[in-house]
Nucleic acid binder design. Structure first.
Lengths: 331, 331
DNA sequence: GTCTTCATTTGAAACGTTTCAGATGCCGTA
DNA sequence: TACGGCATCTGAAACGTTTCAAATGAAGAC
């Protein structure tokens, strides 16, 4: 049914081997022969069968990307950038969306192994005590992978992320300098790297300023818009002078709750986020936040991944990208 | 290096054929044998090689999705839903992002053909005179595909989309009933299906109400936020009493421009969008818009695609999903 | 003890490529 | 004429599966 290299070979009167070499632009074949073969291939709209090729070359030309969400603008940009970069490198992107379910993460890793990905980029889920067997398997199979934006504690692997501690440190320091003394920190499960590092920044900023804070000022919740709103309603009773949320979604929800409680921002309370989502600058008031330079993160991640593909004996390392504070109207 | 079915066969003392049948749960093989094989496979972490399997079965288990953007929340939800549905059907999703470049669309189609996708879902670009050769090739190769959300004129194929004409008709009718008589319509290239159908709705609403409008009321631009803003600035001089934009992004840009010009919404002018992006309800004022029921669209699209995979001799058809007006604060 | 039947297993072909050792044939040289 | 060297081409194996016709062997019937 479909035209194969055999058809091309027959029609151009050469052997399959010659046709293959001609099509792949290999040296040592006659100019005219090559021209002939390419003409025929073109006329018949020949497309090489990827499965057959990949079976023998053992290269799938695929890189897997496992991401927790795609509707979160932060990650949709991340996926977009990865897609472009990966294509530019001549690979294809295989996408897995976990919605923060470790079970799905495992499923995708299995799937991607079956599809012979040459490397894997993983944005870890926020599940409490993740089961990492699949990741150990990747290691034992020598399939390179790199964590992106955050990582799992307890697994030695390369990580590319913004310096979360530093970002949150700067934000809290800035608020303290603005005279805030009752800053609430809205975060998620503290055993996760992405929250514990940020919390460290919060703590360090207080320590450096010689200030103390109570544990009540640290509020744990699910880091999305709806929980942000709920938390905002509760916070409204506590009269904070500033609220720092672990991401912009939370900050939006909190903002909305404050508005609904007729608490005005930034007059009554400052609100800050983290991520700098595309829409955060359009919101009212425009959100003060910490920008994660996505393009830079993606490029670095791929660079590290490629290095691992070429040589998987390197020591695992964490690469920090500097975040950038975006001061806007909400503080 | 990697463990293959041969290893499994050897270790469990059966032939490759038997191992294969055991692993694939085929009838006619002994219970104990099967158990043994599965045990061994499990212990060795066996994962079938997808290329090899796909080579012989001629099934890739992949469905291709070509989408114009992923950062637009409308499409990121679309991709998310497709991903879930496709996985649930036991397929994998191959994603292509064209950024409205027909050249990329063609590239992805080629790529997906090489990867033996079993079907293709295409969200057409908004390029003016697209070159459809790749699509004709799909037809000639009997690879089923379905257009989603809009289609190219001049190519017979299945389409699943909301009834754009009807949606825009209702919106404009509603505005007319509210007493608006100077409604501007902000759209993109009118030769495209996605704009011409909506324009038809705009016209029909006027005709049905016995009203006329001038061509100046139809403004053509690139349908994104920035162009919306620019258009908004220009519109601010024209004193419209309502502006209907072809999508929410445009409407957001227009809204922002009006705010910056101190024109208040909805007092001075009504603004309406189309799509009902996730954030449109969070904006201020909350945007009146036409909701495209994404989940329904995705399900129907896949249903049609599967029907085509099973039998590709069916007549091409357009399936309309009813849109739904979301009246909020901007009108 | 032989034959049939049935459940189970197997060997080998096939899928569409790439690869590489060797074949082919031509040219020039001794 | 014989031969070495070179450019070019080719046959066959290999990749890891699935499939299917045929083989195997045990149990039951006579």
């Amino acid at each position: 049914m479909r035209v194969t290299i055999k058809d091309i070979a027959n029609m151009s009167g050469v052997s399959v081997a010659t046709a293959s070499m001609a099509l792949n632009d290999r040296p040592g074949i006659n100019k005219d022969t090559k021209k002939k073969v390419l003409e025929v291939a073109n006329k018949l709209h020949y497309r090489p069968n990827h499965s057959a090729r990949s079976l023998i070359t053992k290269k799938s030309g695929c890189i897997g990307l496992i991401v927790t969400s795609i509707r979160n603008p932060f990650f949709s940009k991340l996926v977009d950038v990865f897609n472009k970069e990966v294509e530019a490198m001549g690979y294809s992107l295989l996408l897995g969306i976990t919605n923060d379910k470790i079970k799905l993460e495992k499923k995708y890793i299995d799937l991607f192994i079956e599809r012979n990905v040459e490397g894997l980029i993983i944005v870890p889920t926020i599940e409490k005590s993740p089961d990492l067997t699949q990741l150990y398997m990747l290691k034992s199979m020598h399939i390179p992978f790199v964590f992106c934006t955050t990582a799992y504690y307890g697994l030695k692997a390369d990580v590319v992320m913004t310096d979360l501690m530093e970002g949150e440190y700067q934000m809290v320091k800035y608020l303290i300098e603005k005279g805030k003394r009752n800053i609430y920190f809205v975060t998620c499960d503290q055993s996760l790297m992405l929250s514990s590092l940020r919390l460290d920044g919060f703590k360090k900023a207080h320590a450096d300023a010689g200030l103390s804070f109570s544990n009540d000022q640290i509020i744990e919740t699910v880091p999305d818009y709806d929980h942000g709103y709920k938390t905002g309603i509760e916070l409204s009773k506590l009269k904070p002078d500033a609220v720092v949320a672990i991401n912009d979604f939370l900050a939006w929800g909190i903002t909305k709750a404050f508005k609904d409680c007729e608490i005005s921002i930034p007059q009554d309370v400052s609100v800050a986020g983290y991520d700098d989502l595309l829409y955060s600058s359009l919101f009212e008031p425009a959100l003060t936040t910490v920008k994660q330079p996505i393009t830079q993160i993606c490029k670095k991640t791929l660079e590290v991944l490629v290095k691992n593909i070429e040589d998987d004996t390197q020591e695992a390392k964490t690469y920090y990208i500097s975040p950038k504070m975006m001061v806007r109207d909400s503080t």
